[in-house]
């Protein structure tokens, strides 16, 4: 294989052809999720506008010389974000709305995390918001959810989100090596005991009496994190198993550490062939009506199925 072929294959890996419908679903889910996030997770941004006492701007905020949070600018940010998210989620004018949401939400999170504590669950979501508006919409509004036309620009967006989801796990494993001076001491350490002592709750306190279980969890966790990039190359059912494993991993983390990582979890949808939702639904409905119509719908379904695994 020549070097040129390798380069072409690598470039093609970043830009698979994927149906516009998946982008449409992702837009709706993520823009609505941003609204949830603003109220449930990064929810103290407006409060920081009222009490900027502990404000300590992060690198990006300093680079762009972003103003200190005030009641006025955080309230304006809130209103603009809600409006732009609702428009973007409708898939009408999704690119204009998207180009507003991306910088506005980045700023929102920058303020929310400018108090000495940074969370690591927002990478995939923030990057998703920045790449989504790069796709020129095919069909608009309701029709977009069944737009089976495939595009490489859509595929690039999906790939970027997938990479960021996986990077969240893989890079956590790297951080665990780095913090030990590039040594593998984390899985045998008392880190989960430490975490539970600081955030006590019934499940955790029971586990404190069985440190070996915590060590098993640490080994399983770091091994999975190291192997996570494999998921990018898995197909179909195997990829689904990989995704379900990590969703289970988050369920366990939520039970033991009270850490949910929902902003990353929601981005796993980039792996899901959501372009099949409407054909599936139509097929189900068609099976209730006459046979000729059903055949017609089944044809649509096959078309969508061919795109699975991208």
């Amino acid at each position: 294989m020549s070097a040129r072929t390798v380069a072409t294959r690598a470039a093609n890996w970043f830009t698979p052809a994927i149906a516009f419908a998946r982008i449409a679903w992702l837009r709706t889910v993520l823009y609505l999720f941003v609204i949830v996030d603003m109220h449930a997770f990064v929810r103290d941004t407006r409060l920081k506008g009222e009490h900027p006492g502990l404000y300590q701007p992060l690198l990006l905020a300093r680079m762009f010389d972003l103003p200190k949070p005030t009641v006025f600018n955080t309230t304006a940010l809130y209103v603009v974000l809600i409006a732009a998210c609702l428009v973007g989620a409708s898939n009408y004018f999704p690119r204009i709305a998207g180009w507003i949401v991306a910088p506005a939400f980045t700023w929102w999170v920058l303020i929310g995390m400018s108090d000495g504590k940074v969370d690591h669950d927002h990478l995939a979501l923030v990057i998703a918001l920045w790449v989504l508006p790069t796709v020129k919409a095919g069909r608009r509004g309701r029709a977009s959810y069944n737009d089976q036309a495939r595009s490489e620009s859509a595929g690039w967006v999906i790939r970027c989100v997938q990479i960021c989801v996986i990077a969240t796990y893989f890079l956590s494993a790297i951080a665990k090596l780095r913090s030990a001076g590039w040594a593998l001491t984390w899985p045998g350490s008392a880190v989960l005991t430490w975490a539970i002592v600081r955030r006590p709750h019934p499940v955790g306190e029971w586990l404190l009496h069985h440190p070996w279980m915590l060590h098993v969890m640490q080994w399983v966790g770091i091994t999975a994190e190291f192997l996570s990039p494999v998921i990018l190359w898995l197909k179909g059912r195997w990829q689904l198993f990989g995704a379900l494993f990590f969703l289970g991993f988050h369920a366990a983390n939520t039970a033991i550490l009270l850490i949910h990582f929902l902003p990353t979890v929601v981005c796993w949808l980039a792996f899901a062939p959501m372009e099949r939702i409407v054909p599936w639904f139509q097929r189900r409905r068609a099976s209730d009506s006459d046979a000729g119509e059903a055949e017609d719908q089944a044809e649509h379904g096959r078309e969508a199925k061919e795109q699975a695994g991208a």
Partner: peptide
């Protein structure tokens, strides 16, 4: 962490010794 969103994923990344 200052480099967010491109900083290290360092939540719970430290090795806590057995006599901590």
């Amino acid at each position: 962490d200052d480099a967010w969103p491109f900083g290290p994923m360092s939540q719970y990344a430290m090795s806590v010794p057995d006599d901590a």
